[in-house]
């Protein structure tokens, strides 16, 4: 059953992932992206990280992709109808894709990775010393994040502040009203 779930979710993720750069309409691309994220969340759940799966659906698919869809709808850009075949960049993209895939397949053939996933019940005993043992509960996430990684969490706070300040600055044009009034004046004087 686990094998079947893995193959199904991987196929879902990869195929919808492939449709994101390929689809002509950005809205379709966004929908495929959401499907891909849900597939990834399924893979997270299969790997025993239930908290991460929930986080992925809530934050990534639920907030980030919704923001994307808002912006795509707001911009209302027409789908690319006639795109002249840009051969050089197609070749460059294809070469990059092939090189990366070949690299990953070569890495996947190394023997130390070709073992099945260990059982979760052995987490306490099999983990190395000094490591935080793998545990699906939210409590261990809390202990890990706010115990060991307290400093990066606080720095993340400032990163989000910088991003927020930047977004507000970029979106808010204080003189929009006076510019609009200027345009009316120009039109009236013509």
């Amino acid at each position: 059953m686990q094998d079947f779930l893995f193959y199904f979710l991987s196929a879902l993720t990869l195929i919808s992932g492939l449709m994101v750069p390929v689809s002509k309409n950005p809205v379709n691309g966004a929908m495929y992206m959401i499907l891909c994220l849900i597939g990834t969340a399924g893979l997270f759940a299969l790997l025993g990280s239930y908290f991460m799966a929930a986080l992925q659906v809530l934050v990534y698919a639920g907030a980030i992709m919704v923001l994307f869809i808002f912006i795509i709808m707001l911009i209302n850009a027409p789908a690319e109808t006639k795109r002249k075949r840009d051969i050089p960049s197609l070749i460059a993209a294809a070469i990059a894709f092939l090189m990366l895939t070949v690299g990953f397949v070569m890495m996947a053939m190394s023997p130390e990775l070709n073992q099945p996933m260990p059982a979760l019940e052995d987490a306490e005993t099999l983990a190395a010393e000094g490591a935080i043992p793998f545990d699906g509960s939210a409590k261990s996430y809390g202990f890990g994040l706010y115990g060991k990684y307290m400093l990066p969490i606080q720095v993340m706070g400032f990163l989000l502040l910088a991003a927020m300040v930047g977004v507000i600055h970029l979106s808010k044009d204080l003189h929009a009203r006076s510019q609009a009034m200027l345009k009316v004046k120009e039109n009236a004087s013509e």
């Binding site: 025993g48 990280s49 073992q115 060991k148 990684y149």
Partner: peptide
């Protein structure tokens, strides 16, 4: 997340 599960280490998830 996959490596985190494979090494039985929570750092990857964090």
């Amino acid at each position: 997340v996959a490596f985190s599960r494979y090494n039985l280490n929570l750092d990857g998830n964090l």
